[in-house]
Nucleic acid binder design. Structure first.
Lengths: 93, 93
DNA sequence: TTTCATTTGTTCGTATGTATT
DNA sequence: CAATACATACGAACAAATGAA
């Protein structure tokens, strides 16, 4: 049950095999799985993430696009991007 | 006066005598003249056109450069590229 | 109702790197 | 080497929706 898990530092140079927005998506996904942000709760805003990660707004949005496609998050206009409750087809936990 | 006019399909391979951005400019010009986009109204965004035509952003921008030089459109930052009202200094046609 | 702050959405402008011709 | 074309990425500004005061 996803508690306090270690997440590697954000280092775009250490991930130079892939694109920034993909590495970004992976990193945010790790943090979600590590429980940094709980299901139903919002992530920091796009601008905040942009500053935190030191990447452009468009890059953050691309990363969030990826996470949205993966079904990890949902984005509501003027609200924010929320961690999607993981669908457990039958089991609770 | 410019109603529903037929515009050939976009086919970069059928126009291989010139550059893509020129064929692109010609094609968009045809659509404007055919009334697909009205004077004063915006064209689809550069990114949208990029996807629609299946060409890179830079290529779209080059094509729009051409149309701007021809006086067919005007581009406003953060707004879009608008069809310029055709200047009929005195004559109609 | 109006105003304001917050947040996502959209768009152009620009720069860089790579591949092809 | 230069021009074309593609993709990624960063920056800035404007637009729209929401919610609170």
């Amino acid at each position: 049950m996803a508690g306090e898990v270690e997440v590697p530092e954000w280092d775009p140079d250490a991930t130079r095999v892939v694109y920034v927005y993909e590495a970004l998506a992976d990193h945010i996904a790790l943090r979600i799985e590590a429980g940094h942000w709980k299901p139903g709760n919002p992530l920091p805003g796009e601008r905040a993430l942009s500053e935190e990660y030191g990447v452009a707004l468009g890059t953050i949005r691309r990363g969030l696009d990826v996470l949205r496609e993966r079904g990890l998050v949902v984005t509501l206009k003027s609200k924010g991007t929320l961690v999607k409750p993981q669908e457990s087809p039958s089991g609770q936990e």
